[in-house]
């Protein structure tokens, strides 16, 4: 998962670094101000612990007993864990950045590519993991399931982001990359999810005072919704590049059953998810427009319902 030096061109690496620096600066501000005390030294020590716990290699066939996976191992990242315990994704950004910086000294991940690595494993993983957990908890889903889902997403989405980064860099084809890294991280994510649930349970028993249990109630729904919308927009932009040009399962079945009647009967606004004459950008635009339309309809419906209730 750690991108080494040389696999991302310098100008792209610089862009990732700039994003990473903005987030790191904010996370330091969080450690200094948002926690009631200036807890910076504590996080330095905790980062050392995080580094060490990432050195525990766990066999992949512990999760899925396939002989092919013998010898393959993964380790816990802990971005979601840190974010949930300190009730802030900034904790994940800060801790993972420190861990990645020291790992790069051991040759695990590059110096120029560190910005991209921080973006994937700290920022994307921390925010997605944390807000999935909060969002699911708000929907009154049981805590272990919410934690598991958050941790699993925090492994698989960075892998997809990594596939995109290597594709932008021209280093690895997108679909194969997403499939390869997505599969591996999807499996490792199951482990990450289970371990995060176990560790969270153990920590809440040992030190209930450090865990902010009521975080799901405290965080405003608007914040969670905003995070969700940003994530969905990201996926909407990514989706057309990942989908193949073959008709999807539903379309194919419809074709077989209705023998193209469906096409003549209904003329969609944007045929096959694209706007003519805009190529790949058109697909992105079509999905974004569609998505915006759904949100607009949703808001209008909510307003009408609200008016009706008062």
């Amino acid at each position: 998962m750690h991108i080494p030096d040389g696999y991302i061109p310098l100008e792209q690496a610089a862009v990732y670094w700039i994003i990473a620096i903005l987030f790191i600066a904010r996370s330091i501000k969080w450690a200094r101000k948002d926690l009631n005390e200036n807890m910076i030294p504590l996080f330095g020590v905790l980062a050392a612990g995080m580094f060490v716990l990432q050195t525990i290699n766990i066999a992949a066939n512990l999760l899925i007993p396939v002989p092919m996976l013998t010898g393959v191992s993964w380790h816990v990242v802990g971005a979601t864990l840190a974010a949930i315990i300190f009730a802030s994704p900034w904790a994940a950004v800060l801790l993972i950045t420190l861990v990645l910086a020291v790992q790069s000294l051991f040759g695990d991940g590059g110096i120029t590519a560190m910005g991209a690595n921080i973006l994937n494993m700290g920022i994307i993983a921390g925010f997605i993991g944390y807000y999935s957990y909060i969002g699911l908890s708000k929907l009154s889903i049981k805590r272990p399931i919410a934690i598991f889902t958050g941790a699993w997403l925090s492994m698989i989405l960075p892998a997809i982001a990594l596939a995109f980064e290597l594709w932008f860099a021209g280093t690895f084809p997108l679909k194969q990359g997403a499939l390869l890294m997505g599969t591996f991280q999807g499996v490792a994510g199951i482990g990450e999810g289970l371990i995060t649930v176990i560790v969270f349970g153990a920590i809440i028993k040992a030190r209930p005072d450090i865990v902010e249990e009521d975080a799901p109630q405290k965080v405003s729904t608007i914040k969670v919704a905003a995070a969700g919308i940003v994530a969905l927009f990201g996926l909407a932009i990514a989706a057309p590049f990942l989908t193949s040009s073959n008709p999807d399962g539903l379309g194919q079945t419809a074709n077989v059953v209705l023998k193209h009647e469906i096409n003549s009967a209904i003329t969609p606004l944007f045929s096959s998810y694209s706007i003519p004459g805009m190529g790949e950008m058109g697909k992105v635009a079509a999905i974004v427009i569609g998505f915006a339309a759904i949100i607009a309809v949703w808001f209008v419906a909510a307003k009408i319902l609200k008016k009706g209730s008062t």
Partner: peptide, 25 residues
């Protein structure tokens, strides 16, 4: 069971490093 043991190792490391952090701080 194995997974639980790994989980306990990790939580022990996490809590111990947090507590060390508190003491140091």
């Amino acid at each position: 069971w194995t997974l639980e043991q790994i989980g306990y190792t990790i939580s022990s490391l996490f809590v111990r490093s947090y507590e060390q952090g508190e003491r140091t701080y």
